[in-house]
Amino acid sequence: MAELLFHLRNVPDEEAEDVRRLLDEHGIATFETRAGFWGLGVAAIWLSDDDEKERARALLDDYQQTLGERVRREHASLVERGEAPTLWRRLRRQPIRTLLLALLVIAVLAITLLPFLWLHD
């Protein structure tokens, strides 16, 4: 029976390729499924052999730990240089888009909460 190993939804292509390469380098047989045109399927990497689950999981856990540490170091470096993304930097770089998104959030909140506020009277 196939075993789900790694979901590919919202995973960057670079990370997915790293996972494929890692599993291939260690001789772990896998296959992939796609979400399909309408996105109703499961985009994932599956194990062909259930007996490899523990070894594959250990490899993936090590990879994700290493990736997390690297991303944290990169973010800390950006913060140190004053280049980390913040709301104010985004507002300066894309003021119209940021303000439109803020207005959209306010509109959704208003549409959601106004009926309850009207019931309170």
Rank of each mutant, 00 (worst) to 15 (best):
residue 19 V to H: 03
residue 22 L to G: 02
residue 100 L to I: 05
residue 70 R to E: 12
residue 93 R to E: 14
residue 94 Q to R: 15
residue 32 E to R: 01
residue 43 A to L: 03
residue 102 A to R: 04
residue 80 E to D: 13
residue 60 L to Y: 07
residue 76 A to N: 10
residue 33 T to P: 00
residue 92 R to E: 14
residue 36 G to P: 03
residue 74 E to N: 10
residue 97 R to D: 10
residue 66 T to A: 15
residue 70 R to W: 08
residue 111 I to W: 15
residue 30 T to L: 01
residue 68 G to D: 07
residue 97 R to M: 08
residue 35 A to H: 03
residue 83 E to M: 13
residue 69 E to H: 10
residue 39 G to E: 03
residue 111 I to G: 14
residue 62 D to Q: 14
residue 85 P to N: 12
residue 105 V to K: 04
residue 109 L to C: 10
residue 65 Q to G: 09
residue 102 A to F: 12
residue 23 L to G: 03
residue 88 W to V: 13
residue 70 R to I: 07
residue 37 F to Y: 12
residue 108 V to P: 03
residue 57 R to G: 05
residue 80 E to C: 06
residue 57 R to S: 13
residue 62 D to P: 00
residue 69 E to M: 10
residue 94 Q to M: 04
residue 30 T to P: 00
residue 112 T to K: 11
residue 54 E to T: 11
residue 16 A to E: 02
residue 78 L to K: 14
residue 51 D to A: 14
residue 74 E to Q: 14
residue 63 Y to R: 09
residue 112 T to I: 08
residue 68 G to W: 02
residue 16 A to P: 04
residue 80 E to V: 01
residue 46 W to S: 01
residue 99 L to I: 12
residue 83 E to L: 13
residue 109 L to N: 10
residue 73 R to P: 03
residue 78 L to A: 13
residue 78 L to R: 12
residue 27 G to M: 02
residue 110 A to H: 08
residue 84 A to K: 03
residue 64 Q to V: 06
residue 25 E to M: 12
residue 87 L to V: 15
residue 105 V to E: 08
residue 18 D to P: 01
residue 53 K to T: 12
residue 28 I to N: 02
residue 24 D to T: 09
